[in-house]
């Protein structure tokens, strides 16, 4: 009935990865393609005008704007902020149900089944990148047909956050396992990285010294967000200029 057992299946194991991201702020044009792509990929609900005005809008990735100088001589800096997948995450320590936990790949995972909606994690997160479903998500027809079947739809009362597109990681791993090979650098990307027109976002394995993201993380432009909190973020920001001077001199 079932297909015959394949030999050597047990001998092959995928290498354990340490997923991370690099964000090149010098390249970011603030186009927000990553925000749109994230919404489409991860079934993130739009909450409407009224709820958004109360600060309940959900964007797993958002663009922060910083203005330098005064009007005629003004510079705008864009900073895409997503979950930093901290190695020492403040959100994990406060969760009473272990819905927010760290998995072996170093991802800061959110398990919706366990979440009871205390919102402690959102309060603990210094990057403010955890979002609570204050209302039940709804999609007007026919928008419900664009929902991604690989990602579960979260209901009211559940905290949600960036997953580094874990559904794409799993799909790539399953395909690689089928072909009995290791994942290649840049073989797949989260939706935000894939959609970035200037390649400001780079995703990959931080444990692989050859990967693009680990080389960028060692760049002399590299810095972390709020490094003094000791959260050990896995997202590296690259910027030439004031920030670089502050942290490296």
């Amino acid at each position: 009935m079932a297909p015959a057992k394949e030999q050597n299946q047990k001998a092959f194991r995928l290498k354990r990865r340490n997923w991370g991201m690099a964000v090149d702020e010098d390249r970011c044009t603030g186009c927000e393609a990553c925000v749109v792509a994230c919404h489409a990929e991860n079934n993130i609900a739009t909450v409407g005008e009224e709820q958004a005005a109360r600060g309940r809008a959900m964007h797993w990735i958002r663009i922060e704007r910083y203005y330098e100088g005064t009007f005629p001589d003004i510079k705008v800096k864009y900073q895409p902020v997503l979950c930093q997948q901290c190695d020492n995450a403040p959100c994990e320590a406060v969760c009473p149900t272990y819905a927010s936990y760290h998995n072996a790949e170093g991802l800061n995972a959110q398990i919706y089944n366990r979440c009871i909606g205390t919102r402690y994690c959102a309060n603990a997160c210094p990057y403010e990148d955890r979002y609570f479903n204050f209302v039940n998500p709804a999609w007007d027809e026919p928008l419900n047909l664009q929902l991604n079947p690989d990602v579960s739809v979260r209901s009211v009362g559940i905290m949600e956050k960036c997953t580094f597109c874990i559904q794409r990681i799993r799909a790539a791993e399953i395909n690689a396992e089928k072909e009995k090979r290791q994942l290649k650098d840049g073989e797949f990307n989260p939706a935000c990285v894939q959609s970035c027109p200037t390649e400001a976002l780079v995703f990959g394995d931080l444990d692989d010294p050859e990967s693009r993201v680990s080389r960028l993380a060692k760049s002399n432009r590299a810095a972390k967000l709020l490094p003094d909190l000791g959260t050990k973020p896995k997202v590296t920001y690259l910027r030439r200029g004031s920030w670089y001077d502050e942290q490296n001199t």
Partner: peptide, 21 residues
């Protein structure tokens, strides 16, 4: 159920030799 939040793949199970039954 949607509230189970499960994403199941048949392929890896069959490749690992799990019988359909």
């Amino acid at each position: 159920y949607p509230s189970a939040h499960v994403d199941f793949w048949h392929g890896p199970h069959i490749r690992a030799g799990v019988e359909c039954q």
